[in-house]
C-alpha cells in the first residue's frame, strides 16, 4: 500500500516538472537532483503547496532542499502524509 502511494506522489512531482519546467517526461529520472531540472526557489515552494493539496499533509518548503531528488522527496512526503492520516483517524 505504501509503495503505491509513494508512486502516486512521484507521478505528481514528475507531472509538475514536466508542465512547470518544460522537461520531457522521458527525461525525468527520479534519482536526479531536482535542481538539475531547473527547479528554482519559487517553483520549489509552489511544488510543496501542490503536494500539500494533493496528499492532505502539512509540508515544509525546506523538504525540497533536505530531500532533493524525486525519489527521496516522494518517500518523505509519503511518510508525513501517512502520519497525518493516522492522526486524523
Amino acid at each position: 500500500m505504501s509503495g503505491l502511494k509513494s508512486a502516486l506522489i512521484e507521478q505528481r512531482i514528475v507531472q509538475f516538472i514536466h508542465t512547470e519546467l518544460h522537461v520531457d517526461v522521458d527525461d525525468i529520472d527520479p534519482d536526479v537532483y531536482l535542481g538539475d531540472f531547473g527547479l528554482g526557489s519559487v517553483a520549489a515552494v509552489k511544488l510543496i503547496g501542490i503536494l500539500e493539496d494533493a496528499f492532505s499533509a502539512r509540508l515544509s518548503p525546506t523538504l525540497v532542499f533536505e530531500h532533493p531528488t524525486i525519489a527521496a522527496l516522494s518517500k518523505v512526503v509519503e511518510e508525513i502524509a501517512s502520519r497525518a492520516a493516522a492522526q486524523r483517524r
Binding site: 512547470e20 519546467l21 535542481g35 538539475d36 531540472f37 531547473g38 528554482g40 517553483a43
Partner: peptide, 22 residues
C-alpha cells in the same frame, strides 16, 4: 547534450531562481 542541459538548468535556477524554458 543532456548532462550539459541539466547543468545549465540547475545553474540558472540556483543563481536566479527562474527556470529556462528552452
Amino acid at each position: 547534450a543532456k548532462p550539459l542541459q541539466a547543468a545549465i538548468r540547475a545553474a540558472v535556477a540556483n543563481d536566479h531562481g527562474v527556470t529556462l524554458g528552452r
